[in-house]
């Protein structure tokens, strides 16, 4: 037998394995001191940003093996992985600040729907399920990545060193996500009559959930200098969206906004009907195998 296998082996490794798993932790060397603020509010704020990333990642990963092109399978999985990475850091930080012994998995898998604090736009089905298609998926990607990039951009100055570090890592990722979305908006809006109609329909599907993105929550208001007030993100968001829509010759959808429920929405744990199914699927193995280690 030839020894081509040896070429795959790193020094000191067992011969049948090629690579070690010694990844450097994403936030290695970052100060984990907790700033002198309302701890419950800080933990809740980490959950908000973490849940947005986790739930949206769960939705994007549904495309894996179902995308229109292999390149898009790779790209959407990549975006989902970036968001999942952000979610893990943020949920871990939430657990650390809360100091009640909950790690990222306890928070992701053992909380009930009412305890999830993600905005509702992250959880609705925008395709490949019956709730949308690739156009709807791109519409949501444009809206959420534009919003989150603006948010993380400000968060890099947070007084919480961990949030600032997560944001600094995240802005690089989000800049790519937003660019990817904008390029597809141009292609779909400027491609065929069919794709243009689907792009417009996709924007109409996601637009009713945009006001919620800019509504200041009491938790955010309680953390000046640490949290970003989402109301301040509107100007940057509008400017980016106007630029993309201008280039794509699209108008802003004229649709009504989905109201909160008794003043409460995703940030308060009040979700759409889609959320229960999403969590049932995501959590069921973890919940049905108590004591298991993974």
């Amino acid at each position: 037998m030839d020894n081509a296998y040896d070429g795959l082996t790193d020094a000191g490794e067992e011969r049948h394995w090629a690579f070690g798993t010694g990844f450097t932790a994403a936030l290695a060397g970052v100060d984990r001191a907790i700033p002198d603020v309302d701890r419950a509010a800080l933990a809740a704020y980490c959950l908000m940003l973490g849940d947005d990333a986790l739930v949206y990642s769960q939705r994007l990963a549904e495309w894996c093996s179902r995308a229109p092109e292999l390149e898009e399978d790779v790209a959407l999985a990549n975006i989902a992985l970036d968001l999942l990475g952000q979610a893990r850091l943020l949920l871990t930080r939430a657990g650390e600040v809360e100091a009640a012994g909950r790690d990222e998995d306890t928070l992701a898998y053992l909380r009930d729907e009412r305890e999830f604090r993600n905005v509702r736009l992250t959880e609705i089905d925008c395709g490949p399920g019956p709730g949308g298609d690739f156009g709807t998926t791109i519409a949501r990607l444009l809206v959420l990545s534009t919003w989150r990039l603006a948010l993380l951009g400000q968060l890099t100055a947070s007084a919480d060193p961990v949030l600032a570090a997560v944001a600094a890592k995240g802005v690089k990722e989000l800049a790519y996500h937003r660019d990817h979305a904008a390029q597809w908006v141009l292609r779909l809006a400027g491609g065929t009559d069919v794709s243009r109609a689907r792009m417009i329909a996709g924007l109409e599907r996601v637009w009713p959930f945009t006001d919620e993105l800019f509504t200041t929550h009491p938790v955010e208001a309680a953390l000046p200098g640490v949290a970003v007030d989402p109301a301040t993100l509107r100007a940057e968001f509008d400017q980016v969206i106007d630029t993309v829509f201008g280039a794509a010759d699209l108008d802003r959808p004229e649709v009504r906004q989905v109201a909160p429920l008794a003043g409460q929405a995703g940030r308060d744990g009040v979700h759409t009907e889609a959320m229960g199914f999403l969590l049932a699927e995501m959590q069921h193995i973890a919940r049905s195998t108590p004591g298991a280690v993974w």
């Binding site: 990963a61 894996c64 093996s65 399978d73 790779v74 990549n78 949920l91 995501m282 193995i285």
Partner: peptide, 23 residues
């Protein structure tokens, strides 16, 4: 199994692996 992976670490590993297969 991506949507049901039992821990976030396993989910990330699995999603990255399936992405590699597309690559």
């Amino acid at each position: 199994w991506i949507s049901r992976a039992p821990s976030l670490r396993r989910k990330a590993i699995l999603l990255a692996k399936v992405q590699d297969e597309a690559g």
